[in-house]
Design a binder for these strands. Sequence first.
DNA 1: TTGATTTTGTGATAAAAGTCACATCAGGAA
DNA 2: TTCCTGATGTGACTTTTATCACAAAATCAA
Lengths: 189, 189
Amino acid sequence: MSHLLKEHIGAISPLSDEEFDYILSHFVFKKLKKHAFLVQEGNSVKYEYFVLKGCLKAYMTDSNTGKEFIYQFGVEDWWITDREAFFKQSTATINIDCLEDSEVLGITLENREKLVTEMRKYEHFVAVKANLGYISLQKRLQLMIMGSVKERYENFIQQYPHLINRIPKSLIASYLGVSRETLSRLYRS
Amino acid sequence: MSHLLKEHIGAISPLSDEEFDYILSHFVFKKLKKHAFLVQEGNSVKYEYFVLKGCLKAYMTDSNTGKEFIYQFGVEDWWITDREAFFKQSTATINIDCLEDSEVLGITLENREKLVTEMRKYEHFVAVKANLGYISLQKRLQLMIMGSVKERYENFIQQYPHLINRIPKSLIASYLGVSRETLSRLYRS
DNA sequence: TTGATTTTGTGATAAAAGTCACATCAGGAA
DNA sequence: TTCCTGATGTGACTTTTATCACAAAATCAA
């Protein structure tokens, strides 16, 4: 049996079909139309989501200027949620909505903890993920502080070549912390 | 018995004296002079460190410009290491050195995994820490992208009031991703 | 298809921050 | 104390990026 989530977890903690079926039974499936919200500011955040299909953006809005900063995109094989609200069981400070029709698998904090407690393999998977996530965030911060706009964009192209023509440049600019005009002017020979 | 590390872990997972003694036996104590390196680029990173006393900086040097970016300070009650090198057991890409005479407790990856496996409480502590660390890094990134230099500095003052007069402004500027001159000019009435 | 909306590019100008240079100030070591 | 080093403040100028404005191109929905 092949399943995107099975491959995903299995890359860190190899799973038997039975183990994976058990894990999968703790998730709920959701199908969303373009522009639909998965997480909305002020609401509670019941799930952490694994993206099966489509594309989403997680962003926060500056209360003064009204401008938005995209802190993460979510496409196939990625996890997305308002991490702080999910783990602290508080209300969302960010929004997540769909750039395309999307399909996700959601797991509640309760089920997540249940799996972590019951299955050493899932606990290991989750711990490794947390570390890798932290490390990649640290690299992004470093690039943001030390790198020029050009370096940031080139790094993005290299890391996410499949997103360049899938996501509007204005959103990529927001992710890179630069105005869309400046990004657009980068490659004038 | 009172111990900084016991209070630190206990705030997340309360510990008996026996449990803490057992945990502590997995750490090694190190005492360092000002300017000494705890982690040096190119070397292996055997330990993750908890700071008992003193002040350290973790930074990376841009290979082109030679300028350094401080990604973390470490003072009492903080953890510090080259996370990526430590977990992947590769060589350091960053340097950590002492701004003051310092004392730290180090734990190897092996001992860390041993404790995580043996003690549910330590595992919980470590998981919670990873989450909190990720969340605070995310906030720092957000502030870096959306906030003005002034907002970033004010946030720093609010978060770390005790560091303002302990660490040179030029290093704080590096942490905030701004030149020391610009930081110095912030508060001309 | 067609009209509307979104996306993208680009000029002109303003604002923010960096860089270089130098002066002053504070603290540590002999 | 006295010298030396590192820390800090600030002027002058340059570079980078944001902002505003508008037009062309692409995409989407009825």
